[in-house]
Structures are given as structure tokens and as C-alpha cells.
């Protein structure tokens, strides 16, 4: 996992670096209120884990709106332009093809394929961009080694505050999670392998 180089590195008693502290919440309403509390406490490197997207959790967590749609629009329009140029170059430049007496460069007949190419590139950007911004695929994560965490994909709601957060403190953070109504508060250990340094994210 990417770590901020600033701040102390927390370790467990056995010396394994701490990834974060995780807590469970009973209902969507509870986790929503807890998210608001953690956001107001000033944490930035933390996350709510839920089996479905909770309506409005973005605001409760203070997530900035993703720029993904802008990227999709840019690449979609580029794809459409390239689609048009492809047709223009093939029919009017490289090998002029006169069909039905029309000017080989007349644009009207090129519109359907231009549109389809725009859609195709936008669709690929939507899914690949979503995965890239989410730093997926990532087939291994410290949380996945927690047995309880596997239930998030079923019906559990969890919050994990990561140790790389500047405000992270083993005692205070644990108290905050508990004060916010969390149960089964638990330390998450980093992967045992040495962690490679990555440039700071988006």
C-alpha cells in the first residue's frame, strides 16, 4: 500500500506495520453518522466499506466529486473525431471512392460511424478509467486477510481508518471509532511482504 512518508510508522507488538483500524457498524444509518463524525474529526485516509453504495455517503465522507466523467467526455470526443478522420482519409484521401455521384469528402454519410466510435471509446474509458482511478485490479489487500471483512460483501458495514493518515493515533482513532458506534474494533496488519514505495495518488 502507498504510505505517506511523513509521520510515525505504527507497528503491532510483533513488529508488523499497522495498516489501520477497522470497526463494524450495524446499519446504514449508523455508518452514515459515523462517517460524518470521522470526516469532521479531520481524517482523510479512511474508507467506508458497504455491500452496496450508500446513498449520500460521498457527502458524509467528504469525497470530492470524481473527474472521471470529464475524462470520459474527452476521450469519447477524441474517439469520435478519429472515427471521422478514419472515414475521411480512407474514402477521400487514400483511395477516392465515388459512390452515387457524391463528393468523396461529403460528411453526412460519415455520421453514424463517427457516433459509434465516440460511444465505443467513451465506454472503454468509463470502465477502464473507473478501475484505474480506483487502483484496480489489486488482488491483494491487507483488509482481505481479515475474516470478518469478507462479510462486507454480504451484509456488514465497516469503516477502516488507515495508519498513513496524518491524524492517525492508535488510541485516539480507536476511541473515535468506538464513540461513533463501532463494534469489533480491530487492528489491521500490513501485508507481510516489504511494501514498495509508490508516488502519491490522484
Amino acid at each position: 500500500m502507498a504510505r505517506h512518508s511523513t509521520g510515525p510508522i505504527y507497528t503491532t507488538e510483533s513488529g508488523v506495520p499497522v495498516h489501520g483500524i477497522v470497526a463494524e457498524y450495524a446499519t446504514a444509518a449508523d455508518v452514515y453518522r459515523a462517517a460524518e463524525m470521522i470526516r469532521d474529526a479531520g481524517y482523510t485516509r479512511w474508507d467506508v466499506y458497504s455491500p452496496f453504495p450508500i446513498h449520500g455517503i460521498d457527502e458524509a465522507m467528504g469525497i470530492r466529486r470524481t473527474r472521471l466523467p470529464i475524462l470520459i467526455a474527452c476521450i469519447g470526443l477524441t474517439g469520435a473525431a478519429l472515427g471521422y478522420l478514419m472515414q475521411y482519409w480512407m474514402s477521400a484521401v487514400d483511395y477516392q471512392l465515388v459512390v452515387q455521384g457524391k463528393n468523396p469528402a461529403s460528411w453526412e454519410a460519415y455520421i453514424p460511424i463517427t457516433f459509434e466510435m465516440g460511444i465505443l471509446s467513451a465506454a472503454f474509458t468509463a470502465i477502464l478509467g473507473m478501475l484505474a482511478f480506483n487502483k484496480l485490479p489489486m488482488w491483494n489487500h491487507p483488509l482481505m486477510r481479515k475474516d470478518r471483512f469478507l462479510r462486507v460483501s454480504d451484509d456488514r458495514l465497516m469503516i477502516c481508518i488507515e495508519a498513513c493518515d496524518e491524524k492517525f493515533d492508535q488510541e485516539k482513532t480507536r476511541h473515535l471509532l468506538e464513540a461513533a458506534g463501532g463494534t469489533n474494533v480491530d487492528l489491521v496488519e500490513e501485508e507481510p511482504e516489504p511494501v514498495k514505495e509508490e508516488p502519491a495518488g490522484h
Partner: peptide
């Protein structure tokens, strides 16, 4: 692909899903 139900992921996922729905609508008509 290692999906772990993170709300930060869900946020981008829902944005992408909405855009896909938006571009699939004229696509299916076309």
C-alpha cells in the same frame, strides 16, 4: 479485480455506471 466494496470506489463506480447508462441510451436507439 480485487473489488473491496470501498465507498470511494463505489463513488467512481456509480459515476461510471451513470455515464455508461447515458451513452448506452442513444447507442441502443442508434
Amino acid at each position: 479485480v480485487g473489488w473491496r466494496f470501498s465507498s470511494r470506489h463505489w463513488h467512481r463506480y456509480e459515476a461510471a455506471y451513470l455515464v455508461l447508462a447515458g451513452i448506452s441510451t442513444p447507442l441502443v436507439l442508434s
